[in-house]
Computed example of a mutant assay.
Amino acid sequence: MAAWSELLAGVRGVLLDISGVLYDGGEGGGAAITGSVEAVARLKRSRLKVRFCTNESQKSRADLVGLLQRLGFDVSESEVTAPAPAACLILKQRGLRPHLLVHDGVRSEFDQIDTSNPNCVVIADAGEDFSYQNMNKAFQVLMELENPVLFSLGKGRYYKETSGLMLDVGPYMKALEYACGIEAEVVGKPSPEFFKSALQEMGVEAHEAIMIGDDIVGDVGGAQRYGMRALQVRTGKFRWKSRLWASGDFLVTVPWRGLGAC
C-alpha cells in the first residue's frame, strides 16, 4: 500500500484505455476482463476524476459506450475521448475532404464531413476492408495530391480479442507512409494533442494524471512523453518482453485486482 500511495501522490485524474484494459472484443461484442468492472466502479467512488481515452476505431463512440454499458461498466459517451471525433474536428478546422479507409462501424462519425473530391486520406482499423484494392485506392489518392496528407486514427501494431491477437492500423499506416514517402499525422494515442484534449476535458494537468493501459508504446510511452505517470496492466496485448521497452519512473505492471484494491 505504501508503494501505491507513492505512485498516486498528487494524482487527481485517471485516464483509462478501453480495449485490452476493460474488455477484449470478439464474437458477440466481446467480454469484460476479470475485475475491470469492479475496478472502474471503485475508481469512480474515489476522489479521482476518471476519463476513458481510447484508440478504438472500429466502433462509433455511441456504439462503444453502449457495448461497455451492456458489459456492466458505468460509463457515458461524454466521458470518452476517441480518435474519430477528434479527426472530424481537425478536418473541419483545416477545410479537408477525406478519402476514408475506415471500418463501417465508425463511418457514421464522418457523416457531417464532405468527402467529395478528396484532398487527404483518413485511415483507421478497417479490419476486413484492408484489401489490396482499398489500400491501393488510398495510395492512388495520396499520390495524385500535390501535398498529400494522411491521417491515421492511432498507430498501434496489434490488439487482443477473445480469439487472439489482431493486426491494428499501424502496419497499414506504415505501408502507405513507405509507398508515398510521407509521414502520417496520428490522431489518437500516442499523440500529445490527443492526451491534451482528454486532460482538458477532465480538468487536470499532465503532472496530476496517470494513464492506465495495456500498450507500452501508445499508452505508457505516449503518456510519459506528455508528462503524465503511466501504469501498464497485465491484460490485453501485454507481453512480459514488452517491459524491456519501458522508460521513466512510473511503469508498474499489475493485474486488475491489484488496481481495484488501491
Score class of each variant (00 low, 15 high):
195 F>C: 00
21 V>G: 02
141 V>Q: 07
135 M>W: 05
41 A>R: 10
234 R>G: 13
163 S>K: 11
134 N>M: 12
151 F>N: 12
237 K>D: 07
209 A>C: 14
107 R>P: 08
238 F>W: 15
30 G>L: 08
28 G>K: 12
101 L>R: 07
34 T>G: 03
205 E>I: 02
5 S>H: 04
172 Y>S: 08
235 T>N: 02
71 L>T: 07
209 A>P: 09
67 L>T: 10
248 G>T: 05
44 K>A: 00
14 V>M: 10
67 L>Q: 13
228 M>N: 03
175 A>Q: 06
31 A>L: 09
55 N>I: 02
202 M>S: 02
132 Y>C: 04
140 Q>H: 11
146 E>R: 09
83 P>D: 12
111 D>Y: 04
121 V>F: 00
253 T>C: 15
155 K>Y: 00
155 K>T: 06
84 A>W: 09
179 A>T: 10
255 P>E: 13
108 S>M: 06
105 G>R: 08
37 V>Y: 03
32 A>D: 06
74 D>Q: 09
213 G>H: 12
136 N>Q: 13
61 R>H: 02
222 G>Q: 03
81 T>I: 14
148 P>H: 06
187 V>S: 04
146 E>P: 05
30 G>T: 07
186 V>F: 00
166 M>I: 09
26 G>V: 01
120 C>V: 10
1 M>A: 10
109 E>G: 07
92 K>Y: 00
55 N>L: 01
110 F>L: 02
61 R>G: 07
198 A>L: 04
211 M>H: 07
37 V>K: 02
57 S>N: 05
13 G>Y: 01
156 G>A: 12
236 G>E: 09
129 D>Q: 11
159 Y>P: 12
89 L>Q: 13
76 S>Q: 08
114 D>T: 11
222 G>T: 08
151 F>Y: 14
83 P>Q: 10
110 F>P: 01
192 P>S: 07
205 E>D: 12
201 E>C: 07
107 R>E: 13
116 S>E: 11
108 S>Y: 04
89 L>N: 08
115 T>P: 06
6 E>H: 14
254 V>I: 15
173 M>K: 11
132 Y>G: 02
244 L>A: 15
129 D>F: 08
158 Y>E: 13
229 R>K: 15
102 V>K: 03
205 E>V: 01
207 H>E: 11
188 G>V: 00
209 A>T: 06
25 G>Q: 10
118 P>W: 02
181 G>Q: 00
89 L>T: 12
143 M>D: 12
198 A>F: 06
41 A>H: 11
165 L>W: 11
15 L>T: 08
174 K>I: 05
204 V>Y: 02
217 V>D: 15
96 L>A: 06
213 G>N: 11
112 Q>A: 14
95 G>C: 09
5 S>L: 01
77 E>N: 07
161 E>W: 08
18 I>L: 06
11 V>D: 01
51 R>Y: 05
83 P>W: 08
1 M>G: 14
229 R>M: 07
39 A>Y: 02
52 F>S: 02
242 S>N: 14
189 K>L: 03
